[in-house]
Design a protein around this nucleic acid. Structure first.
Lengths: 336, 336
DNA sequence: GCAACTTTTGCAATCGTTTGCAAAAAGATT
DNA sequence: AATCTTTTTGCAAACGATTGCAAAAGTTGC
């Protein structure tokens, strides 16, 4: 394996000069710079990032931590996750950073200690801030650069990037109302930050429409199709003749609910309209196709990265919520 | 930040002794060892992995490379991917390794150069070996420890872990045959290694059943529900009265196909039975629920890691294909 | 009490870079 | 030609661990 010393020798300069030349430091003569660079290229030399890290105290690595729900052992809305992960990976690569991935179930490492103090990573991206996580709160009292994907409380002590869950949910539910629904159920677990926002949006829409809130219509449901199916069977069937709409906090839940309804002979959307959240790949291809709210994964990933890098540069980074898009499909098409 | 030197000072021993004590090297006196360890614990000290890497020339990091299809820009069967990624992450953490994630679209870095030579990683896990990738072939001529998730040709020059795609597909198609299907279409892109195996399994089943192969029934289809939908509309509808079964190389494709069929008024499974591959979360919750073949993600991930570590210990690791499980659901239930 | 071991410790080199500082080289000004 | 600037270069000291080797301390046997 080649080292900087070898390249220096070949170029007949000192290691210092070689080092500077490779980083294109203008303090070294242009000709020398080019010569060194050319030789490095020729021998396919790359500086050893470990040695560089040790010396510079920077790792050029970002840790991405995916939080799993303690109970269901599932991360928020799987397909969405993979998408945003891909975007983040690309974005980081593009900026010259490597990406350390960690899936953190329940309580494990002390992030600051493990990633930052140990110089494994220069910053953290945390995805899936579920129920209020005190580890995040704690991080914000340190000097660790990090960003969170999730829901902003409006006055967080850290940088959050997420979707406009509340207005997105409101749009979806208002759409159901516009389709003539008067008794709309909410399926989702509002102890989860993002879902809470969707729940609030659901309430907003009902209130605007002058419809009464009804505790019987609010079902705490896990992120899975399975739970959507079960909760619908167990708690929605009894309300059925009257119930004419469902807003589910995720597409998976919505699909599970639709399954139960279909088995029970309920016509969707005629008797009951359904809307979800996420626009997972399947939503457009189930029957009936699911009305849903699509998050802007691409800009989400990009923002997470750029805001993190901004923090690492010592700047302040504001939280930001991205607009979402309501996609109306058959599952809610009741207007003839 | 604490360094080993600090700990050594506190314990009143030399750095060498402290270093050995922390690794529990029996050459150092047991009392001393305990004392050092206790102090390290107390001060939450962890050795700096960068410094350690530089000295030992090991990174205690594994790079996981996800290959994307050049054309569709999609990785093989998304939900499956996230699952196996999770298992790998857990397994690596458990063995004390960090995981570097890279999503590689088309041609980018020279893996050996970037990860191994630069000491960013000690080994590689490559997922989604699609069409024959010469970078993998090339790797196998080097001394780089790596494993691939995919299809084994039976005489690969590298270690492959994957599913028994061929026999799994055969089981699925045989099941369709047992349900009375006589004209079964195959949807999938057999230029992809794993899909090729599924395609062969499809042929096996037909041959065993004495059914004729029919080129019209073989549709090259991307990994998406969208393409399953389109190809079904375009190329299967014309064959319809006769066609009575579909085996799709992935659940996404199957769901897309079912959507098209339903829109066209075809009764599934009465007029036409459908089976897929993967058992994605939605498969059980669409209507009708999809018959499919489930891969053993958990053991897959575990094997990938253990075989890689085995290689890193200088041992040989054999390729291995895991058994799969046929899940029969409504989409193929034609026997009354 | 001394030689011959065995156990336990620490010195110092090493891993491959980066960078502050001073020295050398080159150019400009009298 | 001597002095003063301005460019370029290289020395040497980090960064924080690990480890071969030799020295120190502790045992044992006679």
């Amino acid at each position: 394996m080649m080292t900087l010393a070898d390249i220096a020798a070949l170029a007949e300069v000192s290691e210092s000069t070689a080092s500077r030349a490779l980083r294109d430091n203008p303090v070294v003569n242009k000709e020398t710079r080019l010569k060194v660079q050319q030789i490095a290229q020729q021998y396919q030399f790359n500086v050893n990032p470990t040695a560089r890290s040790l010396r510079t105290q920077k790792s050029y690595t970002i840790a991405v931590i995916i939080l799993f729900d303690a109970k269901s052992q599932q991360a928020i809305s799987d397909p969405f996750l993979l998408e945003i992960l891909g975007v983040i990976a690309d974005e980081l690569t593009h900026k010259g950073y490597d990406m350390l991935l960690s899936t953190s179930k329940t309580k494990d490492k002390d992030w600051k200690n493990y990633y930052i103090d140990a110089k494994r990573a220069d910053g953290l991206i945390i995805i899936g801030q579920g129920e209020h996580d005190q580890r995040i709160e704690q991080l914000s009292h340190s000097r660790v650069p990090f960003v969170v994907w999730g829901a902003s409380s409006g006055h967080d002590s850290f940088t959050v990037v997420g979707s406009q869950n509340r207005s997105g949910a409101e749009a979806a539910v208002s759409h159901l109302v516009a389709q003539g629904c008067k008794h709309i159920a909410f399926l989702g677990d509002y102890r989860h930050n993002e879902i809470e926002q969707r729940y609030l949006g659901y309430q907003d829409a009902l209130q605007k429409a002058g419809l009464a809130l009804n505790a019987d219509y609010e079902l705490i449901t896990d992120f899975t199709a399975q739970d959507g199916y079960l909760k619908t069977q167990q708690q929605l069937f009894p309300l059925l003749p009257e119930l004419d709409g469902i807003f589910a906090a995720s597409d998976a839940i919505a699909l599970g609910a639709m399954k139960a309804l279909q088995e029970h002979g309920v016509q969707v959307p005629q008797q009951l309209a359904v809307a979800g959240f996420d626009d997972i790949a399947m939503s457009a291809y189930c029957s009936p196709a699911l009305t849903t709210v699509k998050q802007d994964t691409i800009n989400g990933g990009k923002l997470l990265v750029s805001k993190l890098l901004q923090q690492m540069d010592g700047e302040q980074a504001e939280s930001e919520l991205l607009p979402v898009r309501l996609l109306t499909r058959q599952s809610s098409a009741r207007n003839g």
